[in-house]
Write a protein that binds this DNA or RNA. Structure first.
Lengths: 210, 210
DNA sequence: ACCGTTCGGTACAGACCGGTCTACATAGCT
DNA sequence: AGCTATGTAGACCGGTCTGTACCGAACGGT
């Protein structure tokens, strides 16, 4: 900040600024509709510097996706104040902010399963399913792998529907999740608050969306 | 030149050929990666003719999506040889062929909720959910709207996951659907086609229609 | 058989994109 | 101070995209 309005930012944070601008622009405009010129302008970085840090736009996209890994699903799986069952349900509460899973968006936009970014997308999906499986095991599910995969599918379904329709679909997904969890956990296993939800038809949307 | 197998097709089917080529190319390559030149070549139509039938590519994309409406989910809801419950489950059996719901793909690729094609995507999703709801009502679900919305979400989730991962996710979705259906239909509900379906609601679609 | 209309083929215009390169300015080291 | 490394600003290149213009050939009504 030793210069004018957009004065020389002088390197140090160049890479971070580029990735930060990527997150914003790719999310708001999509990958294909965001040009490198605009991206560099927002990041306040010259194209030369950009191509010094990333040899191509594809590589930038891949790194942009890789960066998400540690951040997403923040803390949900680490909240020790919740029972495992509550943690599983909490995974459906957050997502009003995220417009669409960037991994799904990237996989569709790039349209090339061989693209390195597509590989990261697969890795991420697998990681999420694994964490759900792990939590399902803690919750005492008889078949944790199955429950984890099922919940992962629900998250993706809600994400996709939220994108196409404008309505919020995560409450619906949460209702399904509650049913699945209750069916997958033997009645004896956990200590859980009062709930009769989902065992029969009505299933009154337990998790209030946003 | 009046030559080859197709030679001058002279207009009549021009519009249909364009839409047919659109379906193939947009599905295989995506919308953004399919240029009008290639599309016209496949359709054996000159660009002039193409732009005579569709004033812009956007309009072509919108029409391409609109055309899907009657065709998708072919026959599943009309199979009178199945019980309503079986029809609901049958919606999860087919789709190994379809790479990704074209509506979701278009919504992601176009990335503009105001695009006319996005509107058609919403209409389609709503239609599918409505048909599922109708069938759920026939099956005797206590809350057909909820069950229909839930099943629609499962279909989208399976479609999305199939696209990102390569694994087939529809069996997982079908397993969830079976649980939801059984939980949503009172124990007294019918299991045989000859029984009276729809004990609670309307019972249209008698056996033998179509 | 004639003539207007329509369509195929294609060259072209204008815009944009990814990526490279040159010219210049600054920071830090010696 | 001077030198070097690094970064900025932006022109520039080749390619591709959507969309248009033009010309000639084929068709259809009369």
């Amino acid at each position: 900040m030793e210069k004018g309005p957009l004065g020389r930012r002088r390197g140090r944070g160049a890479r971070e600024r580029i990735l930060s601008a990527s997150q914003q622009l790719f999310r708001d405009q999509g990958i294909n509709r965001t040009g490198m010129d605009q991206l560099c302008a927002v990041a306040q970085v010259s194209k030369r510097t950009a191509y010094q840090h990333f040899t191509s736009k594809d590589e930038l996209v891949a790194e942009y996706l890789r960066r998400f890994d540690p951040d997403v699903m923040p803390g949900v799986f680490d909240r020790t104040d919740l029972t495992p069952r509550e943690r599983l349900l909490a995974a459906f509460e957050i997502p009003a902010s995220t417009p669409l899973c960037p991994y799904l968006a990237a996989a569709v936009e790039l349209h090339d399963p061989q693209h390195p970014a597509s590989q990261y997308a697969r890795d991420y999906k697998t990681t999420i399913a694994a964490r759900l499986t792990e939590t399902a095991r803690e919750a005492g599910a008889t078949n944790p792998e199955q429950l984890g995969e099922q919940l992962a599918l629900l998250i993706d379904g809600a994400s996709a529907r939220t994108r196409v329709l404008n309505s919020e679909s995560f409450p619906t997904a949460a209702a399904i999740a509650a049913v699945l969890i209750d069916n997958a956990i033997p009645a004896s296993s956990p200590r859980q608050p009062s709930d009769d939800r989902g065992t029969t038809g009505s299933a009154p949307v337990p998790v209030g969306g946003q």
